[in-house]
Design a protein around this nucleic acid. Structure first.
Lengths: 251, 251
DNA sequence: CGAGCGTTTGAAATCGGTCAACAGCAGTGG
DNA sequence: CCACTGCTGTTGACCGATTTCAAACGCTCG
């Protein structure tokens, strides 16, 4: 159940299965060829290896070809906050454009590969291809929206709600990439989930057990099956089909 | 102590005092004139009025000419999360590019004014002016970085640390706009600070009192004076003031 | 001057954190 | 094949930071 196994991936954007999730959405084949020329390099990462580190000079952004990455910020005293989990087709390194230095660490959660996009060359190409320019702006904007949803979660939701939202968000993003949306493998540890959601590992574990007890999900190790999507949505405080109602809490 | 009072502001970017904080950093005067033509409209907001609402179709982004705005997300059940406080020169509405609809509400915290930037026209201009294009990317990127710092705060810091960081962040941004950086008026209520930081209003109040007791700040109503910047930085888990220092990562 | 709101302060309740023990599975090596 | 080891995840009991509830204070403005 590895997403988009390497073997099936061509080396060109023009024929990459990720086309519809990645940068070059909506380009003509002529323009696609230009993007092909832009992406001259790829980086393979073993589980645990870093794509970039906080403070590294930035010259490129990266699109994930396969695998899963996390981005995180580390505090001087060792505490760390995971900012995001990143799936194939997503662009990494965008937060480095502002200062010319990466503002976070990007670590592979499993063996992964990323396409290297030289940023100055990209900007130049984006000036020639309006669709590409706009697509890039959309990507940046969606990144903002995603972070803001995350903020909403950390600032206003209880542990239970955060976790339900997390599972649904993951499910949705996997589904968009062609997977069945109700069953998947978590690529991250309980600790990483906890860091992402601003709660402790024990709380993650307890909440997952409670969800399972309530019949909302099945979980064995890192394999999750979402059983009662509607119930999860309700729990996550999300407006789900037909019923924006009170939040039901299961004991 | 109103920032950049209306009377002092010209109607053109080319002569606006905000030049160095706003979109047109580093443009030649020729290019500046083109930006002038782009910004045909301005919107005045009374305290409490909205610049846009969640779900509104998006056609423009906005730069704040004077005043202060907040952006917030509202949950179906009424809970709300303030995403950011926005000062003159900052660009609002960027999170709407992705979906073509505003993803949050933007509300004036005091009488304010914003420049309207038609986004399609802007993209067209950005294709002609590389510096403008890059500046826009930097702005988007910094927005991401800001949100990620906020995530770090909500996910990993205790109430005390969040509040110290908040005061320092505000101070820094005001200083960048030419104010003394240790004394200013809060434009937002305790409740709004609490929402922004993911804590309750009573906690905000208690922590502020505690800071004052400890001699870190003086506070009377909404007027704050930062006394012990270094102490605040320490509390916020930040390196000392004015010393950007590298974070060393041990593997 | 009094109404109304925003803010502060105190006391009690609670959610999630911390500490601790244990279970489950993977990998290693005898 | 099984014991040993180490890591990750689970569960229980207790604790504490923050929330919640409640009441008083003090601006601001009509």
């Amino acid at each position: 159940m590895i997403p988009f196994p390497k073997a099936t991936l061509p080396n060109k954007c023009s024929t990459c299965v990720l086309g519809q999730f990645c940068l070059p959405i909506g380009l003509t084949s002529d323009d696609l060829n230009k993007v092909d020329e832009l992406v001259k390099e790829r980086i393979s990462l073993k589980k645990g290896e870093r794509l970039y580190r906080h403070g590294n000079a930035m010259s490129s952004v990266y699109s994930i070809r396969f695998g899963t990455l996390k981005t995180e910020h580390v505090l001087p005293d060792g505490r760390l906050q995971i900012i995001g989990f990143h799936l194939p087709g997503e662009i990494l390194g965008l937060d480095a454009i502002g200062e010319g230095q990466h503002q976070s660490d990007a670590v592979a959660l499993e063996d992964s590969e990323a396409c290297v996009i030289r940023f100055d060359e990209f900007e130049s190409l984006a000036r020639q291809i309006p669709v590409l320019q706009h697509q890039f702006h959309r990507i940046l904007s969606r990144e903002l929206t995603q972070d803001q949803r995350h903020l909403l979660s950390l600032g206003s939701l209880r542990a239970e709600e955060r976790l339900a939202g997390f599972l649904l968000n993951l499910s949705e993003r996997l589904a968009a990439r062609g997977y069945v949306n109700h069953e998947f493998d978590l690529r991250m540890s309980r600790e990483e989930i906890g860091s992402y959601l601003g709660i402790q590992i024990e709380t993650v574990s307890r909440m997952l057990s409670r969800f399972a007890e309530s019949g909302l999900i099945q979980i064995k190790q890192r394999h999750v099956k979402l059983i009662d999507m509607e119930g999860l949505c309700e729990l996550a405080g999300l407006p789900k089909p037909n019923q924006p109602q009170e939040i039901k809490i299961c004991t």
